[in-house]
Design a protein around this nucleic acid. Structure first.
Lengths: 288, 288
DNA sequence: TCTGGCGTGAAAACATTTTTCCAAACATTG
DNA sequence: CAATGTTTGGAAAAATGTTTTCACGCCAGA
């Protein structure tokens, strides 16, 4: 009757023959909406399947669980395992250094961050942001804070190769109002803000928003206050075994946005790349 | 305080600013393992996040739920909606976006790059480089090229918090000879060079080497010509499905170097961090 | 038609969860 | 450094959830 099969689904299939009519009714309902239909209380779950609570209680015991709570937590661990899914390859990310070497601890944390960043990413929002970024009718402004200035700079360098009409707002916040003055309705502001969040960036976002500018925010998992004003917010996981925060996941998201923008408008981008190459080759002649 | 945002995740983000420390602890645990970490009983869920049950109860009310059961069933319906097919509602998990979505292809490539970078990393060289970087008797110079300027900038910002006596050599190569003039034997030059490799950086490395400077090179898998002159070279894998190269692995290696340097000299670093915090707090007062 | 076994759910008994209240710990301010 | 307000978790009370018991109805076989 009982089996040592691993998942609830498998146990149901293995024992289906031994189940009574009402028990099958519940089993079917669970498989139809798996695992959600088994994660509420026994009362609710039974009512949804239109059977009585004792039926459910008896069935989970037939499946080999000690009681409903044990069955419930079995479903939960399955869900947990499934969600950590595809990106879990990081098991073999280790270098030849000992397990406890900082490199390996670090790599583990970075892998986690990337996985969690992706798991929490709204792909609809991603696509919408890319639409904004690749629309050259909208001027694109890029800005970052103390730490993220480097990321904003990186974004600027790459977007410059991908599209025209882009401005990097220098880190000196005193000049920001001048930039806002020139912003048109529908322009796009790509803003980086990670802890410690900076008041100046919040003010800038408010100001830009008031001028009808669309704000795309890249922040950390705790979310900068700017997210209240942003059209699209992206949250990048940052914890590492260290006193400061990692921006590897942030960099990954940024590069993904750039790559998608490039793909969205390939012919134009292609031409720009070719021109750029030519110019660099010429510059190299001078340099030699 | 309450919002009419739809998902639990969104509500947490929208209200994160109003949450207390313990509440954030739970919120973070939930986002880290969403939604499984919110689907057990309040007792278990609180214990897993290492907070008390009243904390969780208070938080879900702040998020606008009448009580924990309502919060629980909200999570459950999200799960249900998500499982019931990609067409039904927007799939906000990258892992569930179509296999062919750029995000997934991109994430796969980035994972590969990190894995290969680590596999090809010589941990003895890493440790030796960290020894050089954490020795404040040696002045540290940081420099990058067109693309890697941003990484050099990022390195500078972080090393500044970790150690004294560091200089960021601006990207205008015309001024580099002046810096070399001031370099002493035993000083360290952290140099970034990825394709397309820049002649100026090669000249700089030769010049520095001639002055007895130790050169640490961070480059890509094809290796910049600078590696011929470098004391330690690190090769970061860069291929992505795109016309340009990814620097996520490069960023990871850089952060690992910074983290190791910080760890090598923790007491000094600690003091610098505390001072920095103080100064920023003061600066914030001005900023307001 | 009776008898015995099985499946089922109502309801009682029991266990756990959820909420509320409160005092201690903590941070903040004058 | 005391006064004040906020945050926090322990513990009891209230509410729910889970299990068990048991009686009823159904059906097969004598």
């Amino acid at each position: 009757m009982t089996t040592d099969a691993t998942t609830v689904r498998e146990r149901i299939r293995a024992n289906f023959a031994t189940l009574t009519q009402s028990e099958r009714k519940f089993a079917t309902a669970l498989l139809d909406n798996y695992p959600a239909a088994g994660l509420a209380s026994i009362t609710i779950v039974a009512a949804n399947a239109d059977v009585s609570t004792p039926t459910v209680a008896r069935m989970v015991q037939k499946l080999g669980y000690k009681g409903y709570p044990q069955f419930h937590s079995a479903l939960l661990s399955e869900l947990e395992a499934k969600v950590s899914g595809p990106t879990q390859r990081r098991a073999d990310w280790a270098s030849e250094a000992p397990e406890s070497h900082l490199l390996n601890r670090f790599a583990g944390a970075v892998g986690d961050n990337i996985q969690k960043t992706l798991a929490n990413l709204n792909s609809t929002a991603f696509d919408a942001a890319v639409d904004l970024l690749s629309d050259t009718d909208r001027r694109l402004y890029v800005v970052g804070g103390r730490i993220t200035r480097a990321l904003a700079d990186y974004a600027f360098t790459h977007f410059q190769a991908v599209r025209k009409r882009i401005t990097h707002m220098t880190s000196s916040s005193a000049t920001w109002p001048h930039y806002v003055l020139d912003m048109a309705e529908g322009d796009v502001l790509l803003l980086f803000d990670v802890r410690r969040y900076e008041t100046n960036l919040l003010r800038l976002a408010e100001l830009a928003k008031a001028h009808g500018v669309r704000v795309i925010l890249i922040t950390d998992q705790w979310a900068s206050p700017v997210s209240a004003h942003a059209d699209h917010s992206f949250h990048c996981w940052t914890p590492i075994p260290s006193a400061w925060d990692s921006n590897v996941a942030t960099m990954m998201l940024l590069e993904a946005l750039i790559a998608a923008t490039q793909e969205a408008n390939w012919p134009e981008t292609r031409a720009r790349y070719d021109q750029l190459d030519e110019i660099f080759d010429t510059a190299r002649l001078f340099g030699q």
